[in-house]
Design a protein around this nucleic acid. Sequence first.
DNA 1: GAATGCCGTTGCACATAGTGCAACACGGGC
DNA 2: GCCCGTGTTGCACTATGTGCAACGGCATTC
Lengths: 271, 271
Amino acid sequence: MKSVHNAMAALRCFSGQTRELAVSRVADRIKITPSSASRLLGALRDGGLLDQDPVTRRYRPGRLALVLGGLYQAHTKLRDLAQSELDALVERSGHTGYLSLLDGGDLLVIHTRQGGYPLRLVVEPGARIPAWATAGGKALLARLPDPEIRERLRRAPRNSQWPTPSPRGLQDEIARIRARGHALAEQETFPGIRAVGIAVADGEGRAFALSLSFPVAGPDRKAQDRFLGMLREAGHRLGDRFGDAAWQAYTASHPKPRPPRGGRSETMEAP
Amino acid sequence: MKSVHNAMAALRCFSGQTRELAVSRVADRIKITPSSASRLLGALRDGGLLDQDPVTRRYRPGRLALVLGGLYQAHTKLRDLAQSELDALVERSGHTGYLSLLDGGDLLVIHTRQGGYPLRLVVEPGARIPAWATAGGKALLARLPDPEIRERLRRAPRNSQWPTPSPRGLQDEIARIRARGHALAEQETFPGIRAVGIAVADGEGRAFALSLSFPVAGPDRKAQDRFLGMLREAGHRLGDRFGDAAWQAYTASHPKPRPPRGGRSETMEAP
DNA sequence: GAATGCCGTTGCACATAGTGCAACACGGGC
DNA sequence: GCCCGTGTTGCACTATGTGCAACGGCATTC
């Protein structure tokens, strides 16, 4: 299945930073000859997974990609609602928010939203970062059983930019995240950047991380705590909505912001 | 590139109705042996384009599909805004709305939203319908140069359920749609169902159709005209926003609802 | 305007890569 | 227990995709 593998390697070249790619760029990045790349991308275009700009001859994601992406969300609307929550969070905090999910040992960024604050950590959708170096990634990992966490981190290729954790430190941090229900990244993703992250899952298996990043020298302690509180409120809302058992447990460490009184307004359509 | 072609044929089996597929179902539908299908889907899973349910062994769109779908929207947010407009339309009319685009000679449904009205034409996202049998498809086709319209319809495989148009009728209908700026489908998609559709394009090439369907016996003439008016208003807003020249021209037939007074509020972030 | 470099695409011969067949393992039903 | 349906794996064969080289198009350069 080499050609199929190459095809997906080619597809993975596309990201928020590189929405369009020339044949030769793809050939370089996945180490195949330009002739093969030309045929491969041509086939993907014929199938509708890619579109080709008729004038520049460059490729970009196509219609088939759009429908498949839409289908990922499957039955739930967790992704949609999570994104709304995130947008609101960014609006109120002024800092950058990320919606992402776990891909092996990496955090895969799905959606970002820039806040108004001038100093920003810009990460494009499609970017992959070692999960353990991010707040969202840690929050997602902490939901997995211990052996799987170790397995995922073991398999992840070593990366000089983001070091691998010590077994001891890993254990402690995971325990802390599980107890509190949120994860912190203290300049671990990027120097000078602090981040807070939570993870929410729908009925079966699909988990997303919501995270918020800001400069360490930016908002003061009080403000940071407010952001964390807002993030946790969002987590509670989503957790309640999608029956995420973990979020019931987290009520202990931080009290649940609004104890459910009768008569919540339903904004979603009935099935 | 046969295996890549098969891969995309397999991917095209997924739709709103069939979000999960078993190996054998895919094998049947794209006419390959189960062994090949097993290897093929396995490769797509390894690449992240598909996920496999560990217990049922069935496949569904994966993370890579999600990012690629997100990238389709590219620089513009036409899709997002069009969807918002559509949702509002459905809310106000109570009937079903569709967001779709042209795929060869077919209309490819991207997003649907059910209204409250009990009698509904249910079309799942991912569905393909001969464009000429739909209001949205006609609106999209009418934007193309004449030879290309004929070419696309010529290439489309014959389909007993939806007949091909006569050259004469095609010519007239296209002219009518271009003059008015919207298309109608009078029980052409489905018996007893009437639909109205418009098409909007962003700066370069990407065009979406917004359409609304309702039973012929449902809303009265007045109400239908209101729906059409609302749809056209949405078209004007989107057309203005994305510089769609066609929508300036359409002002003649139906007067533009709100002539642009100074000081439009900018909701999009600056680049 | 010719020359140069870069890019995308196409023919061709070879060897790899993917195919179908058959067999196996697994899980549920009459 | 026996089935049937399903998903996966070994194996031999051939069809398929590969690299190489050459070509045409398009800018940029001199």
